[in-house]
Amino acid sequence: MKYLARRLLLFVVGLFAISVVIFLALRVLPGDIATIMAGLNSPPERVEALRAQMGLDRQLIVQYGAWIAGLVRGDFGTAMLTGQPVAALVGTRAAITFPLIILGLIIALAIGIPTGCAAVLARSPRARAVYQGVAIVGGAVPALWGGLILILLFARGSGLIPILPASGFPQAGWADPGRALASLVLPALTVGVIVGASMMRYTRSALQSVASTGTIEMAMACGMTRTQALTRVGLRLAMPQLVSVIGLTFAEMITGVMVIENLFALPGIGSGLVDDLGHRDLIAVQSELFMLAAFFLVIGLLVDIAHRALDPRLGD
């Protein structure tokens, strides 16, 4: 309980710190926010009007307070271009990004964990070297390039085996689940394969550290085969480490996801954020950055709690 309390406190402090950093990054560093939003060559009156309209003429601390008070009420501001509430905007975008991330994670786990086990089970040095090579090369592929290669292989219109849509998301959204899912397959595969390679490396090293404690030999002495011992006993013991890694991978994936959403023209959170930055819609950017950062802090919190729950040795 003591750990949980401290970790929760840490979470709140983290949220606060992030909100201050984001707020200050948009205010204090060079480049006045209203001038940036109005555009480079706009007349001073327009800049002034915009500044007053968005309350940027108030004191910093008042602005910050108003923003945080809005966040607490669930008011994330309105997007400059469309006048839509930012919360609704992020909601529609999340309906694409979250399925993409989850699909990518499933693919990564489906690839990474079995191959990681196989890499430990492999006996001949040559097989080990091959697994090692695959993991290193897989982790070294830029997401952008991986996506392009998959487009060249499988996309309708240009691919060698044209079976999947190359880009875009159906207008109907999830009302048309088949097509919506189909449009996510290539992007998820791109993210999944690349993350799967690092997942494989983590699985391998976690299993090796478990094996070095002698538990695998113990299980084999009790009559299990090596494969059984590794997959039944070893994987379970490696689970706490793997959960931590999966959490961090989640954060790592978002870079790939942003690139991939742009590449496949999916209107998700990542491509939306980049668009808003391009439109200099800084109020929306501010809230979106905060939401994303908060999301990752929650993931970090959940991972730490799960790690504790799975590993009784870490109890208070």
């Binding site: 979470f11 950017v285 950055l289």
Partner: peptide, 23 residues
């Protein structure tokens, strides 16, 4: 230690986007 644990889950790309706004 606390600060590192709190900050480590923020992806690099988000930090880059934050910095890119003013810079």
């Amino acid at each position: 230690v606390v600060a590192i644990d709190a900050l480590i889950s923020i992806p690099t790309v988000l930090i880059a986007l934050m910095l890119a706004v003013p810079m």
